[in-house]
Design a protein around this nucleic acid. Structure first.
Lengths: 144, 144
DNA sequence: TTAATTGTGTCTATAGTAGTTACAGATAGA
DNA sequence: TCTATCTGTAACTACTATAGACACAATTAA
């Protein structure tokens, strides 16, 4: 499965913004840490902006900053901001004339839906602030 | 995200086999219900066979049958049989010289890992027998 | 011996992801 | 006012994963 990296990239950028809450950070600066190109990140930042998580200032000395405290940003909020899709494919185009084919889709939506809900409940309990704290703790432990 | 349909197809096929436990079912018959081609299904069936969930008989009047009772097959077992990957991309190639870039990967593995574990715990509680029962109940409700 | 079926290899079409370039619009600061 | 900088977005390309399609050797029942 070709999983998309936008969620991971979004968390990465938000962590950078949380660490530098006083200043604005440009997409070019973030691109050097995420190791990708600024235009790709600006697309993701656009989604985060529409979700009210960040705001931008165009022009010279512009950049991005958080609009909410890291404690108030859950990973689920980020996930939903950048990814509208489902974890699992439910729409496989079955033959409706078959006993199973006709009803398997709604059945799978029920079962997969429960599993996705459990996944999302976990993300809802995890905050950006926790991620940043864990990352900093790991960094200082590795430095020593 | 281009989610793969193999998990859904696998459940679909196993449900067909569970409904027809007395007889062997060919990949061509299953393909007409799943609405795809037999060769693709045989590849998925190969994975299910390696996981000990089904067995095949080649040759004329051959086909596939279950090797375990539907009550003893959890959706997690099926999921793990057909899909080795992760739900979320963790390996985005960050810049290790950056304060966040160097440690974000292991941090995300921790957080994403918890969410995936919750997802899998839910699948572990769901069985093929339940899926078949739900599908049949839906079918009879729609028929009335 | 024949017909049917698995198991697998190969090729192709399609689509999703991200890399790249470009550029209009906005803004700070000289 | 001018210039350098940065956003926001569009367009194009390259790459990769998925699955559809076809083929065929090996196997088996009748």
């Amino acid at each position: 499965m070709q999983t998309n990296t936008q969620f991971a990239s979004a968390i990465h950028m938000l962590a950078l913004l949380a660490l530098d809450e006083d200043e604005q950070v440009t997409s070019a600066e973030m691109a050097s840490s995420v190791n990708t190109n600024p235009a790709f990140l600006r697309r993701i930042l656009g989604a985060l902006s529409r979700a009210g998580l960040v705001e931008s200032q165009p022009g010279a000395r512009g950049g991005w900053r958080l609009r909410r405290a890291p404690e108030d940003i859950s990973l689920l909020t980020i996930y939903q901001a950048v990814d509208e899709g489902h974890l699992l494919a439910m729409r496989h185009h079955t033959n409706p004339n078959c006993k199973i084919g006709g009803v398997i889709q709604s059945t799978l939506e029920t079962y997969f839906g429960e599993a996705e809900a459990a996944f999302e409940r976990t993300l809802a309990r995890q905050t950006l602030a926790q991620v940043v704290a864990t990352a900093l703790a790991t960094a200082s432990r590795e430095a020593s």
